[in-house]
Design a protein around this nucleic acid. Structure first.
Lengths: 197, 197
DNA sequence: TCTGTGTGTAAGTGGTTACTTGCATCGCGA
DNA sequence: TCGCGATGCAAGTAACCACTTACACACAGA
């Protein structure tokens, strides 16, 4: 059904703009180009529509990191860029979900359909660096991963809201984060740049 | 007027729980223990009440860092703990403000009554470390500050929403963040621990 | 041609919202 | 005791919300 898809997309978009209470059935139907009656005939209720729309919208691919680290600087930079772009693209929807998760826990449940959180991928990657002797033994992989992912998350959430603080370019920021991250986990520039070559 | 203060506090609390649309005048008045009519007689409209309440609620003290670094590990740990506690305490209100800033820009305007953003304090502190020769010259103070502040921000925002990811204790996390931060900016353990002593 | 099936319009349901009006009540100073 | 300002209660307004009913139309298969 084409109309179902249109309604699901419109619901996710209007929800990202206005939140649950602001996403009125009238506005969603208008955005989808169908009548409000059709919305109710297709989904029964606003709640059913929103749950299905948010579940579909949060089904975004999680970027992977190589199982065998070869060039940490390049691999981490690419992964961090992709992570930022994913978060930045859905930042409005994410802010609404975070804001309304306390009131409507079922919303975050359907958004948590992630099989694995991205921070786990990075944690595993750091462990592999340690196994190869490219990272210091005394660094906590979980904490290190949380620091880099957290910094990227903050950029994606706050960057467009307080531009006077985040004045630098995002690509420069990610390069700097990766460089500092590698220094923080004790991965020196030589092995990080050259890798297995 | 005691009643004005009660209404302002109730407005901020209900807003943090339910957002702008969910913070109904009836609920705010009930929370303050006064009648809804008194609310309108005191503030005229819901919008006037909310703007005044959010301006007052966002007037939270910004922690300072010493002008002259003496013991970076201790000073940064204390500052980071305070920063986390501040953010964690108002996390619900902050999530609502972030979520509704696109729709109601005037809300974030009154919340941005900060004279200086905390990240600027940390940036200055890193510069002082560099001047003393305690931090590497090639680190970008602005980026380094953004990374630590961003990681703390993420902990405060997401920690209670995805507990299965943030499994460690917050104090351990902050200790780890500070240690990695100092390694990232090239501040070795000796000067960081001992300081000027 | 008939018969569903899916869609549209028009109208209306009951509930909630911000906000108002009229009047009674309370406390407090003169 | 009187007056007055602040408050509360009852009721109501117009607008908006999710959701429903009734009916017309368009199209596809039999």
């Amino acid at each position: 059904m084409d109309i179902r898809e249109r309604l699901l997309g419109a619901a996710a978009q209007v929800y990202a703009e206005a939140g649950y209470r602001g996403a009125t059935t009238r506005r969603i139907a208008h955005e989808a180009g169908v009548s409000e009656i059709t919305l109710f005939r297709q989904f029964g209720s606003k709640e059913a529509l929103m749950l299905e729309a948010l579940t579909a919208a949060s089904r975004t691919a999680v970027l992977a990191l190589p199982d065998v680290p070869a060039n940490p600087v390049r691999e981490l930079t690419e992964w961090s860029r992709g992570r930022f772009e994913t978060l930045f693209r859905i930042r409005s929807l994410l802010r609404k979900v975070m804001s309304e998760a306390e009131e409507h826990p079922e919303i975050i449940d359907c958004a948590k359909s992630y099989p694995r959180h991205p921070v786990n991928f990075l944690e595993q990657y750091v462990r592999r660096l340690q196994e190869r002797g490219w990272a210091a033994e005394d660094t906590d992989p979980k904490l290190a991963a949380a620091m880099l992912v957290g910094a990227i998350f903050s950029e994606a959430m706050v960057r467009d809201m307080i531009p006077e603080v985040y004045s630098y370019a995002i690509d420069d920021a990610i390069d700097g984060y990766v460089r500092m991250f590698l220094r923080a986990i004790g991965c020196d520039a030589r092995s990080a740049e050259a890798g297995a070559s």
